[in-house]
Design a protein around this nucleic acid. Structure first.
Lengths: 344, 344
DNA sequence: ATGAAAGCGCTAACAC
DNA sequence: GTGTTAGCGCTTTCAT
């Protein structure tokens, strides 16, 4: 492996000063045609790439933003992460991606590390940031983080100044109800998710609201908490099917749980959309992969990602968070919903 | 946002030199109890985290490795990336993840960027590295990269020195055939993938070999190229079903295509494992999500990831690549295979 | 247009 | 043990 070469090596061989080399590299100032060319030739000869580490130290700017997600293996986070990376790439920013792996200790460690890396902002999606009531330790951590580093998330942190870009849950649930009610459903269940997760809690709240709005009855046994996994959906559906009067439509907390719902149903020879309707949130690629394809609430990941990035950038500039920014969801209709069967 | 504080600030306030602060921070040398404590107190007071940028420059070591994957949204890459990150984290390394998004220009840009970041090694999975015959431009790029940065991949680069950790395809195909043949299948198809992708080509080669080995006939219409997506599998299965004498078993190039196969089949009222058997490669979470659950070849992502990382580290140490390292696959049997129906 | 030199924040000899 | 100092590789005044 070759010795790593520096701007000084180039300068010496080109018979110029390091400043001149720097100038042609950054284009910050004019350099005579001749010197520019001989520098460029050497840069090419040695395949020289200036160290961003040294540059970062010199500029005290890293052009890097940190991104911590709950788990990149989850399609929802992956979709968002890619869009953020794209948006960042377009304006010359690097993104440093970390997985919290749903482990609060690891999450904290990653956050600290990003601060050490002197990222110019941190975007956090999921894990502790999702708590309905912010964990005290986490709030303290974010308070420290935000002393030096702008921080934006998709939820909200109680007791720490942070940027927020979040989904308009009311709108999402409204669209779901509009579809379901217009189809004629009046027995609508909500399956999966934990009430201690803010977004889930909000969905539940709006579920209650729209139930009332449409003059529908709230049945305790139609609201089932569960994990966000396929298994969570599976378990919920099992219980829903045992209900004295099963729902005609089910709102799953995400595509994963919807898949589980479908599976539990199939085992009992119950199928969507023939026997029940199913809607879910997130519109990940899973919605397109299962049969029936899922009608699911989309967030436009591209827009979501760029809004998160921009919020982070603005916060970096202003030194303080903006107001909350909303993402407008859009229900993508596929094959999992239909009118309920003849009234029982 | 507070001014970013440095070890000098700490040193001044503690009444010691910056070297002492550095010593307590790194634990590189003994410091008297008293000074250590007052430094630590200030570190805590200001929530000071030393700049890894400055540290990186000083040490000329970044403790960072670069990872470029074709697309993190693909569960295969996500699984591998997470394991690499875990393994790296355990030994104090940061991983800088980039997506090539199957765009060669972006891939090249990311590679260059990683070199600029002075990562201590690069692991590349997918995209250009997967070509059966290495792209000339890519080979040239890797030749330049490897002048300064150890590079390891899961395939092989013709004309550039790189580390290789790759799957033992022969073993994988052998296991697939063992299962299928022992079940009684003798009409086995291979669906999806492109022959210009090295791993796919190798699977094809071994498919031919084991066909012969088991005394089975090669039928041209049983070998179908296609994309690696669900759609690729779908199209392949459509054609397979139109075949005069359809196969009793299908080997799909990955789980995605297997899902497509299943869907095309279901549309014609053909189901696995009742009507045909299905095996695929990769054993991603998709294999567990679809019904029937897929029998799929697993690579032990955890081991795969740590081997890649170790290969990269060894290459960084030795300054030259080791030999090729093999990953031993293991067929995970689920519900998509059974004995063929009564002989026609 | 170009070079000299200071500085970014940290570590690691080297002295004492 | 602890301070002094010289880098690490780059950018950017400030002169000229």
């Amino acid at each position: 492996m070759d010795r790593t070469i520096t701007i000084y090596d180039i300068a010496r061989e080109a018979g110029v000063s390091s400043a001149t080399v720097s100038r042609v590299l950054t284009g910050s100032s004019n350099v005579s045609q001749g010197k520019r060319e001989s520098v460029l030739r050497l840069v090419d000869k040695y395949q020289f790439r200036p160290s961003t580490v040294a540059r970062g130290l010199s500029l005290t700017r890293t052009h890097t933003i940190g991104l911590v997600v709950a788990d990149i293996r989850n399609p929802y986070y992956a979709a968002l992460a890619v869009e953020i990376e794209k948006a960042a790439g377009e304006i010359g920013l690097t993104v440093l991606l970390c997985n919290a792996l749903n482990d609060r200790a690891l999450e904290a460690k990653n956050l600290e590390r990003l601060c050490g890396q002197r990222v110019e902002a941190i975007i956090q999606i999921g894990c502790s940031a999702d708590d309905r009531e912010t964990d005290r330790d986490y709030a303290a951590l974010i308070r420290r983080v935000t002393r030096t580093t702008p921080y934006v998330t998709t939820s909200r942190i109680d007791g720490a100044p942070c940027g927020v870009v979040t989904i308009d849950c009311a709108e999402a649930v409204r669209q779901v109800f509009d579809l379901l009610v217009s189809l004629g459903h009046d027995r609508i269940a909500l399956a999966g998710g934990r009430d201690n997760v803010r977004s889930t809690h909000e969905i539940f709240q709006h579920y209650l609201y729209f139930l009332g709005r449409h003059g529908l009855e709230l049945r305790e046994d139609y609201v089932l908490e569960g994990s966000y996994s396929q298994q969570g959906g599976y378990k919920c559906m099992r219980r829903l099917l045992e209900t004295p009067c099963p729902p005609t439509a089910i709102i799953a907390i995400n595509d994963y749980t919807a898949v589980g719902v479908l599976q539990a149903a199939a085992e009992q020879n119950v199928f969507a959309p023939r026997d029940f309707s199913l809607v879910s949130f997130d519109n990940t690629f899973l919605a397109d992969i299962v049969r029936p394809r899922l009608t699911s609430v989309d967030y436009s990941y591209e827009l979501f990602g760029s809004k998160l990035l921009n919020a982070a950038l603005r916060m970096a500039e202003r030194g303080a968070p903006d107001g909350i920014e909303l993402i407008h969801p859009k229900l993508v209709v596929r094959d999992s919903c239909a009118a309920p069967k003849a009234v029982k």
